[in-house]
Computed example of a mutant assay.
Amino acid sequence: MCIMAMAFAAHPRWRLILIGNRDEYHARPAAPLARWDDRPGLIAGRDLQSGGTWLGVSQAGRAAIVTNLRGHGGPQPDRASRGALVTDLLAGDGAYDNAAQARLADFNPFNLILIEQDRAHFLTNRPQPLRTGLTPGLYGLSNGTLDAPWPKTLALKAALLNWLTDGAQEPARLFDALRRESLPEAGIAPATPSDAPDEAAASPIFIRNPVYGTRCSSIVAIDQEGRGTIMERRFDAEGRDGGETIMAFDWPQGSTSS
């Protein structure tokens, strides 16, 4: 997942609105959004190469999303899959199931946001492992630091804010923002190249590229009563629609324990 915007505890109706695009090589196999038989309660797409996921929710009251992180060298193939970290945190089991204790140095450079009902956390492992809580608000994340003012990150955050202040109805309308292929003039372009050589240094929100591009767009919407919807739209190597999945779920009421 290479870009996301999130409104966490920032609207009277919505506990969480999270939107994002997964940018990846089209040759890398993936399964569509679904409930996982081998990890009960987990709803996510699945990377069929490494077995993890880039974004998902758990009916135990968790949501998580990961992005690669530029500027710290290319990926090392002997490291653990970043998707495994997302999956374990969502499922609440496995070698990396505890955000406070997981060995973040095991992975290639990443940023990760984890929501546990009424708490949100930001995790990264470069330049050194960092775990920090997030206060209620609006956030944007791509392949740099949290809220780095890259043009596409600013544009996606602005689109989410506009939606929130314009009635905050029909979360599926946010797919339009995730499909934008032009860049605004505002913002500061990334200073470091992507670890994917086919990605431009300053790419739009939606990347149309036959080798490396936007594979899917996702929306997670959870209201104050814990009623949730996760939506995924998929795209082929030409940027054409390749299918859509919408699934409902419920989060438990009450806060999580520390």
Rank of each mutant, 00 (worst) to 15 (best):
A44Q: 03
W36Q: 06
F175W: 02
S257A: 13
R233A: 08
Q224V: 15
D97E: 01
A177F: 03
N21K: 06
A60H: 06
N162Y: 05
S194I: 05
A9S: 09
S182G: 09
T256A: 12
R180W: 01
P109C: 00
G254S: 07
A64N: 11
D118E: 14
K152I: 08
R131F: 06
M6D: 13
R227Q: 15
P32R: 13
W163V: 14
T135I: 08
G137R: 07
D106K: 06
F206I: 08
D176Y: 00
L55Y: 03
A201T: 14
G20N: 07
N108D: 02
D38G: 00
A91C: 03
R234W: 06
W163K: 15
G242N: 13
R70I: 06
Y139I: 11
L104N: 02
D106T: 11
R215F: 03
R13F: 01
G243Q: 14
M1L: 07
L156D: 05
G51F: 03
M4R: 08
L33C: 14
E24I: 13
N143I: 13
R240M: 15
N209D: 15
A91M: 01
G242I: 12
I43E: 04
L112T: 13
D47K: 03
E116F: 01
L33Y: 10
L141R: 09
N111D: 11
R208V: 14
M6N: 12
A221H: 12
S203E: 01
L141P: 12
A237I: 11
A91F: 00
T67V: 08
I17W: 02
L161W: 01
R103G: 02
R179I: 10
F110T: 14
P12L: 01
A168L: 02
A30M: 11
A60D: 05
F110K: 10
P171T: 05
A172R: 05
M6G: 13
R131L: 15
R180Q: 14
A80S: 14
A159E: 12
L89P: 14
N68C: 03
Q128N: 12
E225L: 07
Q101D: 09
P149C: 04
M4F: 10
G226L: 02
P12W: 00
L146A: 12
A9T: 01
A168Y: 00
L90V: 15
N125F: 04
W36H: 13
